[in-house]
Amino acid sequence: MKNNQFKSEAKSPTSDWRLKPAFSYRSVIYALLILIIFYVTSNIWTKQVSEIYSKAKEEVAEKETPAWKHATIKIFNSFIKMGKEMFPPQISESTPIEAISEFDPQNLPIFSKLIDKTYKEHELNPDTFKMETTEVKKQILKRPFGYLEKVLAKMLETLEIALWGTVLSVLISLPLAYFCAANYAPKRFLYLAARGIVSLIRAIPELISALFLVVAFGFGPIAGILALAIHSAGFLGKFYAEDIENADKGPQEAIEATGASPFMTLYYSVVPQVFPQYIAYTVYILDRNVRMATVMGFVNAGGIGAELKGRLDQFQYSHVCTILIVIFVTVFALDRLSAHFRNRLI
Protein backbone atom coordinates (compact mmCIF):
# COMPACT_ATOMS: atom_id res chain seq x y z
CA MET A 1 0.00 0.00 0.00
CA LYS A 2 2.63 2.44 1.13
CA ASN A 3 5.02 1.31 -1.57
CA ASN A 4 2.46 1.78 -4.33
CA GLN A 5 1.72 5.27 -3.22
CA PHE A 6 5.39 6.05 -3.22
CA LYS A 7 5.84 4.65 -6.73
CA SER A 8 2.88 6.44 -8.26
CA GLU A 9 4.09 9.68 -6.82
CA ALA A 10 7.56 9.15 -8.15
CA LYS A 11 6.14 8.45 -11.60
CA SER A 12 4.35 11.80 -12.05
CA PRO A 13 6.37 14.03 -14.40
CA THR A 14 8.28 16.85 -12.75
CA SER A 15 6.28 19.39 -14.73
CA ASP A 16 3.26 18.33 -12.64
CA TRP A 17 4.92 18.83 -9.26
CA ARG A 18 3.23 21.51 -7.30
CA LEU A 19 5.67 24.31 -6.55
CA LYS A 20 5.25 26.55 -3.56
CA PRO A 21 4.24 30.11 -4.59
CA ALA A 22 6.71 32.82 -3.65
CA PHE A 23 4.05 34.64 -1.63
CA SER A 24 1.34 32.80 0.21
CA TYR A 25 -1.87 34.70 0.86
CA ARG A 26 -0.94 34.38 4.54
CA SER A 27 2.25 36.36 4.27
CA VAL A 28 0.38 39.03 2.30
CA ILE A 29 -2.17 39.29 5.10
CA TYR A 30 0.57 39.55 7.71
CA ALA A 31 2.29 42.26 5.70
CA LEU A 32 -0.99 44.19 5.42
CA LEU A 33 -1.62 43.79 9.13
CA ILE A 34 1.78 45.18 9.96
CA LEU A 35 1.19 48.14 7.66
CA ILE A 36 -2.16 48.81 9.30
CA ILE A 37 -0.58 48.74 12.75
CA PHE A 38 2.10 51.17 11.60
CA TYR A 39 -0.51 53.46 10.08
CA VAL A 40 -2.79 53.44 13.11
CA THR A 41 0.03 54.07 15.57
CA SER A 42 1.90 56.62 13.51
CA ASN A 43 0.03 59.63 14.91
CA ILE A 44 2.12 59.21 18.06
CA TRP A 45 4.77 61.20 16.21
CA THR A 46 3.02 62.72 13.19
CA LYS A 47 0.86 64.84 15.48
CA GLN A 48 3.86 66.38 17.18
CA VAL A 49 5.64 66.89 13.90
CA SER A 50 2.71 68.87 12.51
CA GLU A 51 2.53 70.92 15.70
CA ILE A 52 6.19 71.83 15.39
CA TYR A 53 5.67 72.63 11.75
CA SER A 54 2.63 74.85 12.21
CA LYS A 55 4.35 76.72 15.03
CA ALA A 56 7.33 77.31 12.79
CA LYS A 57 5.00 78.52 10.04
CA GLU A 58 3.53 81.15 12.34
CA GLU A 59 6.98 82.32 13.30
CA VAL A 60 8.20 82.74 9.72
CA ALA A 61 4.95 84.18 8.42
CA GLU A 62 6.59 87.26 6.95
CA LYS A 63 10.07 85.89 6.33
CA GLU A 64 11.51 84.11 3.36
CA THR A 65 12.73 80.88 5.00
CA PRO A 66 10.49 77.88 4.54
CA ALA A 67 8.87 76.60 7.74
CA TRP A 68 10.56 73.17 7.69
CA LYS A 69 13.98 74.81 7.49
CA HIS A 70 13.17 77.13 10.33
CA ALA A 71 11.98 74.23 12.50
CA THR A 72 15.12 72.21 11.77
CA ILE A 73 17.38 75.12 12.61
CA LYS A 74 15.49 75.69 15.83
CA ILE A 75 15.98 72.11 16.93
CA PHE A 76 19.68 72.20 16.08
CA ASN A 77 20.08 75.51 17.85
CA SER A 78 18.65 74.19 21.08
CA PHE A 79 21.13 71.32 20.96
CA ILE A 80 23.97 73.71 20.25
CA LYS A 81 22.87 76.00 23.04
CA MET A 82 22.81 73.11 25.51
CA GLY A 83 26.18 71.97 24.24
CA LYS A 84 27.68 75.44 24.60
CA GLU A 85 26.43 75.79 28.12
CA MET A 86 27.86 72.41 29.02
CA PHE A 87 31.42 73.49 28.33
CA PRO A 88 33.60 73.72 30.20
CA PRO A 89 32.34 71.04 32.58
CA GLN A 90 32.08 72.10 36.20
CA ILE A 91 35.02 70.72 38.15
CA SER A 92 35.53 73.09 41.04
CA GLU A 93 33.23 74.03 43.85
CA SER A 94 33.03 77.26 45.82
CA THR A 95 31.27 77.40 49.15
CA PRO A 96 30.89 80.43 51.44
CA ILE A 97 32.53 79.42 54.68
CA GLU A 98 29.53 80.47 56.68
CA ALA A 99 27.65 77.62 55.00
CA ILE A 100 30.18 75.10 56.26
CA SER A 101 29.49 73.79 59.71
CA GLU A 102 32.51 73.64 62.04
CA PHE A 103 34.77 75.40 59.59
CA ASP A 104 38.42 75.16 60.64
CA PRO A 105 40.71 77.60 58.78
CA GLN A 106 43.78 75.81 60.17
CA ASN A 107 42.76 72.60 58.56
CA LEU A 108 41.64 73.22 54.98
CA PRO A 109 40.83 70.31 52.64
CA ILE A 110 43.61 69.37 50.26
CA PHE A 111 44.15 71.67 47.21
CA SER A 112 41.60 74.13 48.50
CA LYS A 113 42.09 77.81 49.17
CA LEU A 114 40.20 80.71 50.69
CA ILE A 115 39.18 83.65 48.52
CA ASP A 116 37.69 86.95 49.48
CA LYS A 117 34.82 88.00 47.33
CA THR A 118 32.53 90.98 47.46
CA TYR A 119 28.91 90.64 46.64
CA LYS A 120 26.39 93.32 45.97
CA GLU A 121 23.27 92.77 47.97
CA HIS A 122 20.02 94.55 47.30
CA GLU A 123 17.98 95.19 50.36
CA LEU A 124 14.91 97.14 51.24
CA ASN A 125 15.73 99.75 53.80
CA PRO A 126 12.91 99.60 56.37
CA ASP A 127 13.34 103.29 57.27
CA THR A 128 13.38 104.87 53.84
CA PHE A 129 11.40 102.20 52.00
CA LYS A 130 13.97 102.33 49.21
CA MET A 131 16.07 99.64 47.70
CA GLU A 132 19.67 99.97 48.84
CA THR A 133 22.71 98.25 47.50
CA THR A 134 25.24 97.21 50.10
CA GLU A 135 28.57 95.56 49.49
CA VAL A 136 29.14 92.42 51.48
CA LYS A 137 32.51 90.78 51.83
CA LYS A 138 32.45 87.03 52.04
CA GLN A 139 35.13 84.41 52.46
CA ILE A 140 34.76 81.61 49.99
CA LEU A 141 36.34 78.20 50.20
CA LYS A 142 37.29 77.17 46.69
CA ARG A 143 38.07 73.55 46.08
CA PRO A 144 39.42 73.11 42.54
CA PHE A 145 38.16 69.53 42.22
CA GLY A 146 35.31 69.91 44.65
CA TYR A 147 32.44 69.26 42.31
CA LEU A 148 34.15 66.39 40.53
CA GLU A 149 34.81 64.80 43.91
CA LYS A 150 31.17 65.16 44.81
CA VAL A 151 30.05 63.58 41.54
CA LEU A 152 32.55 60.74 41.89
CA ALA A 153 31.29 60.06 45.40
CA LYS A 154 27.75 59.92 44.03
CA MET A 155 28.89 57.61 41.26
CA LEU A 156 30.49 55.33 43.85
CA GLU A 157 27.20 55.26 45.71
CA THR A 158 25.53 54.33 42.42
CA LEU A 159 27.94 51.44 41.92
CA GLU A 160 27.30 50.26 45.46
CA ILE A 161 23.56 50.29 44.84
CA ALA A 162 24.08 48.23 41.68
CA LEU A 163 26.38 45.79 43.46
CA TRP A 164 24.05 45.18 46.38
CA GLY A 165 21.02 45.04 44.13
CA THR A 166 22.76 42.32 42.15
CA VAL A 167 23.92 40.38 45.22
CA LEU A 168 20.41 40.44 46.60
CA SER A 169 18.89 39.40 43.29
CA VAL A 170 21.22 36.38 43.09
CA LEU A 171 20.23 35.39 46.63
CA ILE A 172 16.55 35.67 45.74
CA SER A 173 16.76 34.02 42.34
CA LEU A 174 18.76 30.90 43.25
CA PRO A 175 15.99 29.33 45.35
CA LEU A 176 13.41 30.66 42.89
CA ALA A 177 15.22 28.95 40.02
CA TYR A 178 15.13 25.63 41.86
CA PHE A 179 11.36 25.81 42.08
CA CYS A 180 11.03 27.19 38.55
CA ALA A 181 12.84 24.22 36.99
CA ALA A 182 10.11 21.76 36.02
CA ASN A 183 12.39 18.76 36.56
CA TYR A 184 13.39 19.70 40.13
CA ALA A 185 10.40 21.51 41.63
CA PRO A 186 9.26 19.22 44.45
CA LYS A 187 5.55 19.99 43.98
CA ARG A 188 3.55 21.09 40.98
CA PHE A 189 1.91 24.01 42.80
CA LEU A 190 5.29 25.26 44.04
CA TYR A 191 6.50 25.22 40.45
CA LEU A 192 3.48 27.19 39.27
CA ALA A 193 3.80 29.64 42.16
CA ALA A 194 7.50 30.20 41.50
CA ARG A 195 6.90 30.70 37.77
CA GLY A 196 4.16 33.18 38.58
CA ILE A 197 6.35 35.16 40.95
CA VAL A 198 9.21 35.27 38.48
CA SER A 199 7.04 36.57 35.62
CA LEU A 200 5.35 39.05 37.91
CA ILE A 201 8.49 40.62 39.37
CA ARG A 202 10.07 40.74 35.94
CA ALA A 203 7.04 42.65 34.69
CA ILE A 204 7.42 45.55 37.14
CA PRO A 205 9.83 48.22 35.85
CA GLU A 206 12.45 49.24 38.42
CA LEU A 207 11.52 52.90 38.44
CA ILE A 208 7.93 52.09 39.25
CA SER A 209 8.70 49.72 42.11
CA ALA A 210 11.28 52.25 43.33
CA LEU A 211 8.54 54.88 43.52
CA PHE A 212 6.62 52.73 45.96
CA LEU A 213 9.68 51.58 47.88
CA VAL A 214 10.69 55.20 48.42
CA VAL A 215 7.33 55.79 50.07
CA ALA A 216 7.94 52.88 52.41
CA PHE A 217 11.66 53.26 53.17
CA GLY A 218 12.08 56.98 52.62
CA PHE A 219 14.53 58.73 50.29
CA GLY A 220 17.81 56.90 49.87
CA PRO A 221 19.62 53.89 48.51
CA ILE A 222 17.59 51.11 50.18
CA ALA A 223 14.67 51.69 47.82
CA GLY A 224 17.07 51.65 44.85
CA ILE A 225 18.78 48.46 45.97
CA LEU A 226 15.48 46.66 46.52
CA ALA A 227 13.97 47.87 43.26
CA LEU A 228 16.96 46.59 41.29
CA ALA A 229 17.06 43.34 43.26
CA ILE A 230 13.40 42.54 42.68
CA HIS A 231 13.45 43.21 38.95
CA SER A 232 16.70 41.43 38.20
CA ALA A 233 15.74 38.46 40.38
CA GLY A 234 12.93 37.93 37.88
CA PHE A 235 15.40 37.79 35.03
CA LEU A 236 17.99 35.66 36.78
CA GLY A 237 15.38 33.25 38.13
CA LYS A 238 14.10 32.62 34.62
CA PHE A 239 17.56 32.26 33.04
CA TYR A 240 18.93 30.07 35.83
CA ALA A 241 15.87 27.80 35.69
CA GLU A 242 16.06 27.38 31.94
CA ASP A 243 19.69 26.32 32.19
CA ILE A 244 18.79 23.76 34.83
CA GLU A 245 16.06 22.35 32.60
CA ASN A 246 18.35 22.15 29.57
CA ALA A 247 21.36 20.66 31.35
CA ASP A 248 22.74 17.37 30.06
CA LYS A 249 20.61 14.54 31.47
CA GLY A 250 23.33 11.86 31.50
CA PRO A 251 25.32 13.06 34.52
CA GLN A 252 22.09 13.72 36.40
CA GLU A 253 20.95 10.16 35.82
CA ALA A 254 24.33 8.84 36.96
CA ILE A 255 24.31 10.79 40.22
CA GLU A 256 20.69 9.98 40.87
CA ALA A 257 21.57 6.30 40.45
CA THR A 258 24.16 6.53 43.23
CA GLY A 259 21.34 7.21 45.67
CA ALA A 260 21.94 10.94 46.04
CA SER A 261 19.02 13.20 46.95
CA PRO A 262 17.48 15.36 44.21
CA PHE A 263 19.12 18.47 45.62
CA MET A 264 22.56 16.84 45.71
CA THR A 265 21.99 15.48 42.21
CA LEU A 266 21.40 19.05 41.10
CA TYR A 267 24.35 20.34 43.09
CA TYR A 268 26.84 17.84 41.71
CA SER A 269 25.66 17.29 38.15
CA VAL A 270 23.86 20.45 37.04
CA VAL A 271 25.62 23.20 38.96
CA PRO A 272 29.09 22.45 37.53
CA GLN A 273 27.58 22.40 34.03
CA VAL A 274 25.72 25.69 34.30
CA PHE A 275 28.21 27.56 36.47
CA PRO A 276 30.06 29.53 33.73
CA GLN A 277 26.75 30.51 32.17
CA TYR A 278 25.45 31.66 35.56
CA ILE A 279 28.49 33.86 36.01
CA ALA A 280 27.91 35.34 32.57
CA TYR A 281 24.26 36.12 33.35
CA THR A 282 25.16 37.65 36.67
CA VAL A 283 27.85 39.87 35.19
CA TYR A 284 25.39 40.99 32.54
CA ILE A 285 22.82 41.83 35.21
CA LEU A 286 25.43 43.72 37.23
CA ASP A 287 26.32 45.68 34.13
CA ARG A 288 22.70 46.48 33.51
CA ASN A 289 22.06 47.38 37.13
CA VAL A 290 24.86 49.95 37.05
CA ARG A 291 23.08 51.69 34.18
CA MET A 292 19.71 51.41 35.90
CA ALA A 293 21.14 52.65 39.21
CA THR A 294 22.16 55.93 37.54
CA VAL A 295 18.49 56.82 37.03
CA MET A 296 17.23 55.54 40.40
CA GLY A 297 17.94 59.00 41.79
CA PHE A 298 15.23 60.48 39.53
CA VAL A 299 12.75 59.06 42.00
CA ASN A 300 15.02 59.77 44.99
CA ALA A 301 16.01 56.14 45.36
CA GLY A 302 19.70 56.95 45.80
CA GLY A 303 22.70 57.37 43.53
CA ILE A 304 23.82 59.98 41.03
CA GLY A 305 20.42 60.40 39.39
CA ALA A 306 19.14 62.88 41.99
CA GLU A 307 22.09 65.19 41.36
CA LEU A 308 21.59 64.92 37.59
CA LYS A 309 17.89 65.64 37.80
CA GLY A 310 18.42 68.56 40.17
CA ARG A 311 21.02 70.24 37.97
CA LEU A 312 18.94 69.69 34.85
CA ASP A 313 15.92 71.27 36.49
CA GLN A 314 18.06 74.31 37.36
CA PHE A 315 19.50 74.47 33.82
CA GLN A 316 23.05 74.11 35.23
CA TYR A 317 24.39 72.43 32.13
CA SER A 318 28.07 72.57 33.06
CA HIS A 319 27.28 70.50 36.13
CA VAL A 320 25.18 68.18 34.00
CA CYS A 321 28.13 67.76 31.69
CA THR A 322 30.44 66.63 34.51
CA ILE A 323 27.85 64.12 35.67
CA LEU A 324 27.32 62.74 32.17
CA ILE A 325 31.05 62.37 31.58
CA VAL A 326 31.49 60.50 34.85
CA ILE A 327 28.56 58.19 34.04
CA PHE A 328 29.75 57.47 30.51
CA VAL A 329 33.33 56.80 31.54
CA THR A 330 32.26 54.48 34.36
CA VAL A 331 29.73 52.54 32.30
CA PHE A 332 32.15 52.20 29.41
CA ALA A 333 34.98 51.02 31.67
CA LEU A 334 32.70 48.49 33.37
CA ASP A 335 31.47 47.24 30.04
CA ARG A 336 35.01 46.58 28.87
CA LEU A 337 35.86 44.97 32.18
CA SER A 338 32.89 42.62 32.16
CA ALA A 339 33.46 41.66 28.52
CA HIS A 340 37.04 40.82 29.39
CA PHE A 341 35.90 38.81 32.41
CA ARG A 342 33.28 36.90 30.42
CA ASN A 343 35.68 36.04 27.61
CA ARG A 344 38.19 34.61 30.05
CA LEU A 345 35.56 32.51 31.72
CA ILE A 346 33.95 30.88 28.70
Binding site: G250, P251, A254, I255, T258, Y268, S269, Q273, F275
Partner: peptide, 22 residues
Protein backbone atom coordinates in the same frame (compact mmCIF):
# COMPACT_ATOMS: atom_id res chain seq x y z
CA UNK B 1 26.66 4.05 32.10
CA UNK B 2 26.65 3.58 28.35
CA UNK B 3 27.73 7.18 27.68
CA UNK B 4 29.99 7.40 30.78
CA UNK B 5 27.72 10.16 32.14
CA UNK B 6 30.54 11.89 33.95
CA UNK B 7 30.21 15.48 35.13
CA UNK B 8 32.31 17.30 32.56
CA UNK B 9 33.56 20.26 34.55
CA UNK B 10 34.50 18.30 37.65
CA UNK B 11 37.86 16.68 38.28
CA UNK B 12 38.46 12.95 38.16
CA UNK B 13 38.59 12.77 41.94
CA UNK B 14 35.34 14.66 42.39
CA UNK B 15 33.61 12.52 39.79
CA UNK B 16 34.62 9.40 41.68
CA UNK B 17 33.48 10.92 44.96
CA UNK B 18 30.00 11.54 43.55
CA UNK B 19 29.57 7.78 43.87
CA UNK B 20 29.86 8.17 47.65
CA UNK B 21 27.72 11.22 48.33
CA UNK B 22 25.30 9.25 50.47
Amino acid sequence: HQQFNLVGRLSVEKNIMTGALR
